[in-house]
Design a binder for these strands. Structure first.
Lengths: 156, 156
DNA sequence: CGTGAAATATGTATCGT
DNA sequence: ACGATACATATTTCACG
């Protein structure tokens, strides 16, 4: 699927703020509202725009603890790791999961209200998994940056 | 700021999908559209809702490499680390930054199109920083989960 | 918080380039 | 194939009870 200069301008704008009306967006990128709307609908249909979401401020909701967890697996067997991935995807406290190359197999980003909840989660998700060898937890009480935007380059 | 059952229902809904119209949102949480709108506006004003954004699909934009980087600092001097944080915040490829306790000082989540770009970024951001001792890079070509939602508990 | 009405925005149809 | 204009429908938003 080809994205021209206008599609990219739309994507950059909506990544920064999707609460903008189609009329304002159209004006910003230099199109009529219907022409702009057709492009936005196509970007949704083609799943270039995956979803539109509200980002909440953790500090206004009682605050959270962020955990960065490096997970080491016993054996690199696909079906065992696929099972782990499925469990990760079903666990709402796990916000992100990266399958990585090298010594470590997975990196998880986990949000919980406190350490007691994290310890419970470790039991359910990690210790109970047959193929999990070990894991290392890094604790953060301060998320200094959280940016959901991708770089959409200027040129076609 | 107090959030009641209705505010929380609104937050849960908008976190999952903020492209929904205010009319549908109002219907879903059981309010009239104006009453619902006033709450949403207040949640924005009070910065409980930080922003509304479009999440793009990296696979539809040429694909990206995700890097998890553990950064070790030389000395724990506030002004030196604050300077590092400022540079991190100004670098668009750095998507997330966690200040962590223990051996490691910061964990970065970085998105780049390829390793050559990552190496350039390391020069600019890491090697060139006076207080940076060392760093360890974990490479991921597969982000298995990416969830921006926070858990907003049911009870008041 | 709800109702009703005015102001905006979205979405469709059609035409022109 | 794509954008603009005009028009119909829907939504947002304000005033009032």
């Amino acid at each position: 699927m080809f994205l021209d200069r206008l599609d990219k301008a739309i994507l950059r704008t909506l990544q920064a703020d999707c609460s903008i009306s189609n009329v304002k967006l159209a004006d910003k990128v230099g199109l009529s509202p219907p022409a702009c709307l057709k492009r936005v609908q196509r970007l949704h249909r083609e799943r270039v725009i995956d979803r539109q979401v509200a980002i909440l401020n953790p500090l206004k909701l009682g605050g959270v603890l962020h955990l960065v967890v490096e997970v080491y697996m016993e054996r690199d067997q696909k079906h065992l790791n696929d099972d782990f991935v499925r469990r990760v995807q079903q666990t709402p406290q796990v916000k992100e999961c990266y399958q990585v190359t090298g010594e470590v197999d997975f990196v998880l980003i986990i949000d919980v209200p406190n350490m007691a909840d994290y310890e419970l989660l470790c039991e359910e998700l990690l210790y109970s998994h047959a193929n999990m060898k070990s894991f290392k937890t890094l604790i953060s009480m301060n998320r200094v940056k959280y940016d959901t935007q991708m770089v959409v380059e200027e040129r076609d």
